Amino acid sequence: MIPSSRFTLRRAFALAAFLTFAAGAVHAQQPAAHTVRIGYQKAGLLAVLKAQGSLERALSPLGYDVKWFEFPAGPQLLEALNANSIDFGYTGAPPPVFAQAAGIRFVYVGAEPGGRHNEALIVKPDSPVRTLADLRGKRIALQKGSSSNYLLLELVSKAGLRYEDIHPVYLAPADARAAFESGSVDAWVIWDPYYAAAQQALHARTVADYTSLDTAFNFYEATRDFAQQQPAAVNAILAQLRTTGLWVNAHPAETAALLAPKVGLDAALVETWVRRVPYGATTIDDEVIRSQQSVADAFYGAKLIPQKLVVRDVVWHDAENGAKVAGK
């Protein structure tokens, strides 16, 4: 015969387990109170979260579901953010500079260190362009306002040239590749996965990347309203990005195997770009702000934006501080 005290304890555990299961079942049946609309690009960390389903698992207990929207580049993503078609996204350093100059209501909510070899100025194997000085007078394809735009600015400056000494041809990545293949441009500045694909399929030759240059940060942005009204969601997304980033850095081959069928590319090609970037969201501290201010100042100096910007004005602060934006 089971002693009554043990019997009572077992019944208590059983009842607790049942109630936990029942509560979970009820929660699972209830619709999410909010939907978070995420803008992502093929090569970013958000694409890994999408493939894993890890963001849905992180946000579901908070009452959020997730919808995903893919973009070919940062400028298009921030245009969607401005139109309130998405709440949260990821870009390189220049797109938010152009967005701030255009008066788009967004805030920087997180950052990620930039890589040195995941973006480059490339030419065809038989191109006469061998050095940066050879770029004078050349037609160079790039996405305007993208991370490649900043790389080109820096490379031109390094060569002792002015931006006016080259002929930028502003094209989205797919159109830029077509122009590059046809020979209607002399060079192409592009990031992964397009860069890795051009190396593999077109045997493109790299003239220069961020080697010997200061790299800019990449950024996670949100609409100002979303960051102010849903700080718990913002912090949960950033926490998951940090966790997943550490996993990706330690498991590049597994990450490539996960992403390859999702993006329709060869796993070896995907692994090439995964290994080029240090993943993981960080907070936006003074170092990050100084770096981004330098990017903004470079575009203003090249007369590509109409006014000098103060990056700190659009940096989001943690929810514990009332989700306030500096200077607002």
Score class of each variant (00 low, 15 high):
Val26Thr: 13
His27Tyr: 13
Ala28Ile: 03
Ala28Phe: 09
Gln29Tyr: 12
Gln30Leu: 14
Gln30Thr: 15
Gln30His: 10
Pro31Asn: 07
Pro31Val: 08
Ala32Asp: 10
His34Gly: 08
Thr35Ile: 11
Val36Leu: 15
Val36Gly: 01
Arg37Lys: 14
Ile38Trp: 07
Ile38Tyr: 04
Ile38Gly: 03
Tyr40Pro: 01
Tyr40Trp: 12
Gln41Val: 11
Gln41His: 11
Lys42Val: 13
Lys42Asp: 13
Ala43Tyr: 09
Ala43Gly: 13
Ala43Val: 11
Leu46Ser: 09
Lys50Arg: 15
Gln52Asn: 15
Gln52Asp: 13
Gly53Phe: 06
Gly53Trp: 00
Ser54His: 04
Leu55Phe: 00
Leu55Ile: 01
Glu56Ala: 08
Arg57Trp: 01
Ala58Met: 06
Ala58Asp: 03
Leu59Gly: 00
Leu59His: 02
Ser60Tyr: 09
Pro61Trp: 11
Leu62Trp: 02
Leu62Ile: 00
Leu62Cys: 03
Leu62Ala: 03
Gly63Val: 03
Gly63Arg: 09
Tyr64Trp: 10
Asp65His: 12
Asp65Trp: 05
Val66Glu: 04
Lys67Leu: 08
Lys67Gly: 03
Trp68Phe: 07
Trp68Ile: 08
Phe69Thr: 12
Glu70Gln: 12
Phe71Pro: 01
Ala73Phe: 10
Ala73Cys: 06
Ala73Val: 07
Gly74Phe: 02
Pro75Val: 05
Pro75Leu: 07
Leu77Pro: 03
Glu79Lys: 13
Leu81Phe: 02
Leu81Trp: 10
Asn82Met: 09
Asn82Ile: 02
Asn84Trp: 11
Asn84Thr: 11
